[in-house]
């Protein structure tokens, strides 16, 4: 893995608070270009908060974030975001193709409407996630995994440099999980940077080459092989960790 001088994402002294209680606290994090990174930590560790603060979706109490050296306002076209599946109303009257086309709205700017070329791009993204047959379907008819893939297609169509994904693997079927992994790897091969909030410790080493362990503060960040150790996990989860590693059950408990 290369480590270019200018990281794809650079977070400097970032603090975010909800009602003056810190959710993440004085975080410094550099994510090198081209890595496939998992953000791992217990519930309430601030994983989603970290992503949302980086994307300017929630106010920061202190600190700064830059994308390839640019502030967010100038780096918008470099960034794509896959929110949690549960964050929207899936009974909204719209089709799968339409949702994917929404990924292009940001590029269109005010007033302009999507046209045939946007439709082509959206269909291409649906093809990639295996939902081309579903383009005209109403979104309420999708299964959970298909919803997740629709969201993924919406991010793909943005053709960004950095992808933020909030728990894309939460409660999806095996086919979808495989599809997402495939796409993550394709993005990785094309030199994109991908940040994924991830819950499943079992698959971290298999899916990701970079990992950040987070619990309000960054406990450790770096290549999975170096950072994803039992000791670090114990620090992150405060004891009581057990997971399968190479077919072997690893258990740690608080000292």
């Amino acid at each position: 893995m290369e480590h270019p001088d200018r990281p794809a994402l650079s977070i400097d002294d970032l603090t975010v608070a909800y009602q003056e209680k810190p959710a993440i606290w004085d975080i410094d994090l550099d994510v090198p270009e081209g890595v496939l990174m998992a953000i791992v930590g217990p519930n309430g560790a601030g994983k989603s908060t970290l992503i949302k603060a980086a994307l300017n979706l929630i106010p920061r109490a202190a600190g700064s974030v830059s994308f390839s050296g640019l502030p967010y306002e100038r780096a918008r076209s470099l960034v794509a975001y896959v929110p949690q599946r549960g964050s929207v109303d899936w009974d909204f009257p719209t089709s799968v193709l339409d949702v994917v086309t929404m990924g292009l709205y940001g590029k269109l700017g005010w007033f302009r409407r999507p046209g045939p070329s946007e439709r082509e791009l959206a269909l291409g993204a649906l093809e990639q996630v295996g939902l081309a047959d579903f383009a005209e379907r109403q979104i309420s008819q999708l299964s959970g995994g298909q919803q997740q893939r629709t969201f993924l297609a919406r991010a793909l169509v943005q053709d960004a440099q950095i992808y933020f994904m909030d728990e894309p693997f939460a409660a999806v079927d095996a086919v979808t999980e495989n599809a997402i992994v495939n796409i993550l790897r394709q993005l990785n091969q094309r030199g994109k940077t991908v940040l994924v909030v991830h819950h499943d410790l079992q698959t971290v080493a298999e899916y990701f080459d970079w990992v950040t362990l987070l619990n309000v503060e960054v406990i450790a960040a770096g290549p999975t092989s170096e950072v994803f150790t039992l000791e670090n996990l114990q620090k992150t989860y405060g004891g009581r960790v057990s997971y399968l590693h190479g077919g072997q059950l690893m258990t740690a408990s608080a000292p």
Binding site: L55, L57, P83, V88, V99
Partner: peptide, 8 residues
């Protein structure tokens, strides 16, 4: 439909 995505 998705205010969060719009914001991002």
């Amino acid at each position: 439909f998705d205010a969060e995505f719009a914001g991002a």
